[in-house]
Computed example of a mutant assay.
Amino acid sequence: MGRGLATIACVSVLPLVFTSGWASGVNAYAVVLLLGLFGVTGVSDEVPRALQRPEVLVVAGVLFLCEAAADKIPYVDTVWDSVHTVVRPAAGAWVGALLAGHGGSLSDVAAAAVGGATALASHSVKAGTRMAVNASPEPFSNIALSIGEDLGVAGLVSFALFHPWAAAVVAAALLAAGLIALYFLVSRIRRFLRRRAGRRQARGPAPRPF
């Protein structure tokens, strides 16, 4: 009987871990900020105490604003994504472990693995898509894509707190669609990388000090 209840509890927290992992790969600071605010305001009891701490909310809020700005500037967004290749999967693993520890059912290590791996996959989709978009000279695609990502993360994380399984299905569909799209965008990504390498060569080596 006890094992059956533990299995049910584990199954119930797993979709939330998966969805938060996907969202962390897109915008980790938004995930931490949203979950923390939902916990502080009493909207949901599923939020761990660690995410509700004032210092965590302040840091997440400041970094979210930084990302909101950097994410909408061509080429700056790619540099930002490069820096966050480690940050986003680590955040997904951290949030997943906290959610599992709060639920007391799923192993922290297993939750961290699910959250981190999912975050890495969605981060790869985001970073690759941005490289493809940056192959186009106009900046409006970056702005539209960034706004869409922010709204998607906010909507899906909010939805996951009340309908975790449905949200996990949506996150899985978005991740699969993103990976498929990324496969077909490889040529544009290569064009972006060649253009960036060409600009570096045009600038030439830095002058040596006398």
Score class of each variant (00 low, 15 high):
146 S>R: 06
30 A>M: 11
139 P>G: 02
152 G>E: 03
97 A>N: 04
127 A>M: 09
45 D>M: 11
36 G>F: 03
89 P>H: 03
42 G>K: 02
28 A>G: 10
75 Y>W: 13
124 S>C: 06
45 D>R: 14
141 S>C: 14
108 D>S: 12
24 S>N: 10
115 G>R: 06
93 A>W: 01
51 L>S: 01
91 A>H: 05
46 E>W: 10
37 L>W: 11
120 L>G: 07
114 V>E: 02
119 A>G: 06
136 S>H: 12
79 V>W: 12
154 A>T: 14
138 E>V: 14
109 V>P: 00
79 V>Y: 12
68 A>D: 14
104 G>N: 09
146 S>I: 01
60 A>P: 05
93 A>Y: 06
23 A>Q: 03
35 L>M: 09
83 V>K: 09
68 A>V: 13
22 W>N: 01
71 D>H: 02
103 G>T: 06
136 S>G: 00
153 V>F: 02
72 K>V: 01
124 S>V: 08
110 A>P: 09
142 N>F: 04
123 H>F: 09
122 S>W: 01
41 T>A: 04
99 L>Q: 05
66 C>L: 15
62 V>W: 06
144 A>R: 11
80 W>P: 02
91 A>R: 00
149 E>L: 12
86 V>R: 11
48 P>H: 09
127 A>E: 04
34 L>S: 11
74 P>E: 07
68 A>I: 10
119 A>F: 05
120 L>A: 15
82 S>E: 00
101 G>E: 08
152 G>W: 05
51 L>K: 00
61 G>T: 03
139 P>D: 01
113 A>L: 11
154 A>G: 13
126 K>N: 09
51 L>P: 00
130 R>E: 12
125 V>L: 06
126 K>C: 07
82 S>M: 11
146 S>C: 05
59 V>Y: 09
72 K>H: 00
118 T>Y: 05
27 N>W: 00
114 V>R: 03
95 V>D: 04
100 A>F: 02
42 G>V: 04
68 A>M: 15
65 L>G: 12
68 A>Q: 15
48 P>G: 07
71 D>L: 03
102 H>C: 06
43 V>I: 15
30 A>S: 10
101 G>F: 03
78 T>P: 00
86 V>P: 10
21 G>L: 02
87 V>E: 08
148 G>Y: 01
120 L>V: 04
105 S>I: 06
127 A>S: 14
64 F>K: 07
144 A>I: 13
67 E>L: 08
118 T>A: 14
108 D>R: 14
29 Y>D: 08
88 R>I: 04
55 E>T: 13
50 A>V: 15
74 P>K: 05
25 G>N: 00
30 A>L: 12
65 L>A: 15
123 H>S: 07
143 I>C: 07
